[in-house]
């Protein structure tokens, strides 16, 4: 479609968004009928998707707390989506209220919503930008005004890169962010994969095609490439429920149905 660059992205509540579907799967009500319809279709294809969503949210919490334990006090959350339960700043501020958290998303409703949530919350910011244009993010006064790139930053790219098609060059995108980070910074990634679903991954992929966000599952090797220039911390890139579980409950019933790989790595 030839859409001139000067056209701002429109707002279309009728077009389901991954962020709102995710919110619904997590038990949230920040969603519309169209989002719920897609979520219900996903659940019909694979009832495990609710668990996948939950596992991801749990990983987020564990990853943020791990990074805090490593001394990280700045977070850049790419593709942050709807500020549903257990946001990064909520997790981090329980430990240290001075922690800086910057969110980036390009979905207009998610951004507007985030602004409402974050109004009056110190040490937070939300930027509306396409994360696949790293310079727009990295050069943004909003981001630069909050985060100090000379100090380690926790870069969060959860359930993000599987929405980025190969032609948007995901590996170059992550490299641009990596290059902007100080040594000691960390990258946390969760990424959808066909390796860890029992239904045909195509079913989920096809269902997501009716939304604003197509899904591009990747193999473990491909996902590992996102960590180029970083050292993966234990236990490496693993099914998401196996990444430093707090309890057996976190481990869930069957890691082979986790749907996502997750890993955290430290910049050399």
């Amino acid at each position: 479609m030839t859409t001139p660059d000067w056209m701002p992205p429109g707002v279309d509540a009728e077009l389901p968004s991954a962020a709102r579907i995710y919110d619904y799967l997590l038990g949230g009500a920040h969603n519309f009928a169209s989002d719920r319809a897609v979520a219900d279709r996903l659940l019909a294809v694979d009832p495990g998707v609710r668990r996948i969503a939950t596992l991801n949210r749990a990983f987020l919490r564990r990853a943020v707390l791990f990074l805090m334990s490593q001394g990280i006090r700045q977070f850049l959350d790419l593709g942050s989506g709807i500020p549903t339960v257990g946001n990064v700043h909520e997790i981090a501020h329980q430990v240290d209220p001075s922690t800086k958290v910057a969110y980036v998303d390009y979905e207009a409703v998610a951004v507007a919503h985030s602004e409402m949530i974050l109004a009056g919350v110190d040490n937070t910011a939300i930027l509306m930008a396409d994360v696949t244009e790293p310079h727009l993010v990295l050069d943004s006064p909003k981001i630069r005004g909050l985060l100090d790139f000379d100090q380690p930053i926790g870069l969060l790219a959860l359930t993000l890169f599987h929405y980025i098609p190969p032609q948007r060059k995901p590996f170059q995108v992550i490299a641009a962010y990596r290059d902007a980070l100080a040594p000691g910074s960390h990258l946390a990634v969760s990424h959808f994969t066909d390796d860890l679903v029992h239904s045909t991954g195509d079913g989920l992929v096809d269902t997501m095609k009716t939304t604003q966000n197509n899904v591009f599952p990747r193999s473990k090797d491909e996902i590992t490439q996102l960590f180029a220039g970083f050292d993966l911390v234990d236990p490496g890139l693993v099914p998401i429920s196996l990444w430093r579980p707090e309890t057996t409950m976190d481990g869930g019933d069957d890691p082979s149905r986790d749907g996502q790989y997750a890993g955290v790595a430290r910049k050399k």
Partner: peptide, 30 residues
């Protein structure tokens, strides 16, 4: 809780729409 959240997300939608329309108008003017 649901009504609150729905209210919230609708307000977000409205804000986003208004902003988008304002940007569209501005871009049309440009």
């Amino acid at each position: 809780w649901t009504l609150d959240q729905q209210e919230e997300v609708k307000r977000a939608l409205l804000d986003a729409t208004r902003r988008s329309e304002a940007e569209l108008r501005e871009s049309e003017n440009r």
